[in-house]
Amino acid sequence: MDERDRAIVNALQGGFPLCERPYRAAAASLGMSEEELIARLGALLESGVLTRFGPMFQAERMGGAFLLAALRVPEPDYERVAACVNAAPEVAHNYRREHEFNMWFVLAAQDGARIDAAIARIEAQTGLALYAFPKLKEYFVGMKLDA
């Protein structure tokens, strides 16, 4: 990644224009040609610096229900419980974290009833109490990472 790539990543984490030639418009503000911007974006995607270039959707607004949940998993049992939780199709991401609450995952389903069913199933299969952390308010979600 060189300086021009860095400029692209820093400048284009949002605000990509909705117009006939958006790459040309964005390229102009970066002082490069449309061809160069498209080629560099392709290379940044190819090398994995960017996971995606396009709209970032707020999944909750498209319908469906989401829930952050955690388990306090006894260490000797960790792999078994991780396999159980990961097997649930409702589990979108699952992270191991350093804490007594050591497994954190997001459940996603069409509606709240399906989330409740997934909770009951995970509790039955793991033998652990699931802690639900519904979102009461969102203050910010975004990316402001400097390349």
Binding site: I8, V9, L12, Q13, G14, G15, F16, L18, L41, L44, G48, V49, L50, T51, R52, F53, G54, P55, M56, F57, Q58, R61, M62, V141, G142, M143, L145, A147
Partner: peptide, 12 residues
């Protein structure tokens, strides 16, 4: 409507 948060580069 907030269905799209923004359009652009999503870095890893």
């Amino acid at each position: 409507e907030g269905i799209i948060r923004r359009i652009g580069a999503v870095p890893n």
